[in-house]
């Protein structure tokens, strides 16, 4: 069990191969602080979506850009922010992927999944930084 809150910053190259490396590091820290079961599932899912969005859409696959990941975790709360070097986007402009007319579209579910699985999801004003917060659940699955 970890002793005090953890803060860590990672700078990723703008390659999709970096996603699993970053996830491993972040999820190991989450587990150290007791975020397991359904909490860990939620964090992995949301982080995957945030990183893929940053690399693909934010930085537009540009290998000269990078993605910054800042982690703050304690026994109660897991928080990670993912910042890209892109121009940002307005998350409210993303169409609702659950509408009948959008069900057969192969993309557009990332933001919705992040919002569903995390306790809080917020974007900065320019839309190039997403902050994901997961408060530890008390249920058996998450314990």
């Amino acid at each position: 069990m970890a002793s005090g809150p953890l803060k860590r910053r990672l700078v990723l190259e703008n390659r999709l191969e970096e996603v699993s490396r970053c996830e491993t590091i972040v999820l190991n820290h989450a587990t150290e602080f007791g975020f397991t079961g359904s909490d860990r599932f939620a964090i992995k899912l949301a982080l995957e979506e945030a990183l893929a969005n940053a690399i693909k859409h934010g930085n537009n696959h540009d290998p000269d850009k990078s993605v910054m990941v800042e982690l703050h975790v304690d026994e109660i709360c897991f928080e990670v922010s993912v910042t890209d070097e892109g121009e940002g986007f307005d998350p409210d402009d993303v169409p609702d992927p659950t509408l009948d007319e959008n069900l057969e579209k192969p993309s557009g579910r990332g933001v919705m999944l992040m919002r569903t699985y995390m306790s809080e999801v917020s974007f900065n004003a320019s839309g190039n930084c997403v902050r994901l917060v997961k408060r530890k659940s008390n249920d058996v699955q998450g314990a």
């Binding site: 899912l45 979506e49 893929a52 057969e104 579209k105 192969p106 993309s107 579910r109 990332g110 999944l113």
Partner: peptide, 16 residues
């Protein structure tokens, strides 16, 4: 035991 929205997208493409 895990998948992403990109995997869902690929399944939709296959289904179509």
């Amino acid at each position: 035991d895990h998948l992403s929205s990109a995997a869902l997208g690929q399944l939709i493409t296959i289904n179509n």
